[in-house]
Write a protein that binds this DNA or RNA. Structure first.
Length: 529
RNA sequence: GAGGGUGUAGCUCAGUCGGUAGAGCAACGGACUUUUAAUCCGUGGGUCCCGGGUUCAAGUCCCGGCACCCUCACCA
């Protein structure tokens, strides 16, 4: 808690829901119980309990079950022998210990049914006054939805066939002072789901599962790169010159050095310095910051993978891209097909490959080599091509007319060289750059080059780029140290960038980038909210 | 930045033609030892996003603002 955090006294500023919970908090303390709990060892995870009873059916909404993790302090739980001879409510089951948040509570006289939830699933507790004794039953009277409790008990089935922990002993682990959302609909307001992601994760079905998939995807990417002998590095996020991409940076300032700085917009230029330094295969998987608009596909900070491989080229990186995606998919399930809106994405490799000019012709019906007809098309689309380089006009038409229609997955390869300032030209075809972009469902997922390592050509291309830049982007400057690095000699290399958030969107069937970013940027909450 | 939509109880949502602010869940009190969105009886709970205006009267109509969602632009 920081000093700016809103503070509330128990007597004012709270609703009646919180007042009722604070009253129970007081009564817990009176009973000598710490309402904030403490260490609770040797518990079983609920999903593990269910798995060993053949009941991993809580993660059923996606048709897939999550891998059930086991705690390090796992206790053996042998249900085979027990289950074969038990009828409903008869023989005593194995002893289990579980902990979780209370998500449903049913009072029935001297009986309570309590559903608790941990990160692996939900299970019902049976709390009978005669079974747990008066003290624990009175303790259970002070339970609210949202509290976190632990239980020791016997695992058995109820008369209605529900796998249930029949409590012997209850443990209070944490009081919740805020009322939870609707117990079945959850929290639906998209704004509040983003502001209170903790509530979204706890009470909305599929949210935790989606973010767990994100961590598995990221783990898988690291594993794939490690298997290819890549080194993971951490470059600087504070840049004196925000280079490596065409985007407006955030500005900041270092007080002691009296230095204006930018948050990085790309990882590229420092990774290439490391190729010069002999690291040969390097990547960074990290956050970049772009001071641009917000949309269902854009967040001002997002996660990017950039990987560089000495002695490779863009085809090396195309193969790598395919493996990264196929392995990530395997890490979250065994299907090559993912539902996307009304349709389905088929990730079965190899992905289609199409040259830039082929894609252009196919989706516009215009010959990309016919600059006049391309310009006429741009006019019809309202793109104002007057005074622009023919390749820039072609590129704008491509973005406007072609990208949306590339459902893919499809690698678009061989771009016009003049729009690729960091890319090596094709031998003998100086107007073509060895670049590909991977498009899926109209989104650009990956962008890769055979990296330009000619320092003189690089300097010349930077200069051309800077000359064409509008005033507002004039903070972009020549990165002389990067050029000096190139002059020391960067091995020929392939380089790849992957938008991790967008990849996670596609692999999890999430239509908005805010569904796969835990805390997307929002305006501050209104005063008094 | 432009256009469209939404904003009512803790949550999910109704609210007619401008005429006393509603429901379900949650909360509070009570009954119930195998419930499953438990059920039953009872009670409390509102800055109708904010600020103006019109009107005898505004959740409702008008103007301005704020936040979020969607589309577009910048961008990946």
């Amino acid at each position: 808690m920081t000093a700016s955090e809103p503070s509330r006294t128990p007597l004012e500023g709270e609703g009646f829901h919180e007042a009722a919970r604070r009253d129970k908090l007081r009564r817990l303390v009176e009973r000598g119980i710490d309402p904030w709990g403490g260490r609770f060892d040797d518990r079983h995870w609920i999903g593990d309990i269910r798995a060993r009873c053949g009941e991993v059916r809580l993660q059923l909404e996606s048709g897939q079950s999550l891998e059930v993790p086991r705690p390090a302090d796992d206790q053996p739980l042998d249900v085979r022998q027990w289950k074969s001879q038990q009828g409903p409510g008869e023989l005593a089951g194995p002893k289990v210990r579980a902990a979780g948040r209370i998500v449903l509570l049913r009072d029935k006289g001297k009986l309570k049914f309590i559903d608790i939830q941990d990160r692996t699933g939900r299970i019902q507790l049976f709390v009978g006054k005669n079974q747990v004794g008066d003290a624990d039953f009175e303790l259970a009277d002070l339970f609210d939805l949202g509290d976190i409790v632990g239980v020791d008990g016997e695992l058995r089935y109820t008369n209605t066939g529900e796998l249930t922990i029949f409590a012997d002993k209850l443990h209070f682990l944490c009081k919740s002072l805020e009322p939870p959302p609707d117990k079945h609909k959850g929290l639906l307001d998209p704004e509040m789901r983003q502001r209170m992601r903790y509530v979204d994760l706890t009470y909305n079905e599929g949210v935790l599962e989606r973010f767990v998939k994100r961590t598995k995807i990221v783990q898988s990417i690291r594993a794939t790169l490690a298997a290819d002998q890549y080194y993971e590095i951490e470059g600087p996020t504070l840049h004196g010159i925000a280079g490596g991409a065409a985007a407006r940076p955030f500005t900041t300032h270092h007080n002691a050095l009296g230095l204006d700085l930018f948050l990085r917009i790309a990882l590229e230029l420092h990774l290439k310095r490391l190729l010069v330094g002999g690291m040969e295969r390097v990547y960074e998987l990290g956050r970049v910051y772009r001071n641009e608009g917000i949309s269902p596909r854009h967040n001002p900070e997002f996660t990017m993978l950039e990987a560089y491989q000495a002695f490779g080229n863009y085809e090396t990186m195309m193969d790598l891209t395919e493996r990264l995606i196929v392995n990530a998919l395997a890490a979250i399930g065994d299907s090559r097909r993912v539902a996307w809106g009304q349709s389905e994405i088929d990730f079965t490799p190899p992905f289609a490959r199409l040259t830039y000019d082929q894609a252009f012709r196919e989706h516009t019906g215009v010959d990309p080599a016919d600059a006049e007809r391309v310009r006429a098309l741009a006019e019809r689309l309202g793109l104002e091509p007057a005074g622009k380089h023919p390749d820039v006009v072609k590129s704008e038409v491509f973005e406007h007319e072609v990208e949306d229609r590339l459902t893919g997955p499809v690698f678009v390869i061989d771009y016009p060289a003049s729009i690729c300032p960091l890319t090596k030209r094709k031998t003998g075809q100086e107007q073509i750059a060895e670049r590909f972009e991977l498009f899926i469902e109209g989104m650009e997922i990956a962008n890769a080059y055979t990296e330009l390592n000619d320092p003189d050509l690089q300097e010349q291309l930077f200069q051309t780029q800077l000359a064409g830049m509008p005033e507002e982007d004039s903070m972009a400057r020549m990165d002389h140290d990067f050029l000096r690095a190139l002059r020391h000699g960067m091995p020929p290399a392939g380089g790849l960038g992957v938008g991790i958030d967008r990849l996670v969107m596609l692999l999890t069937g999430s239509p908005s980038i805010r569904d796969v970013i835990l805390f997307p940027l929002l305006r501050p909450e209104a005063e008094g909210a």
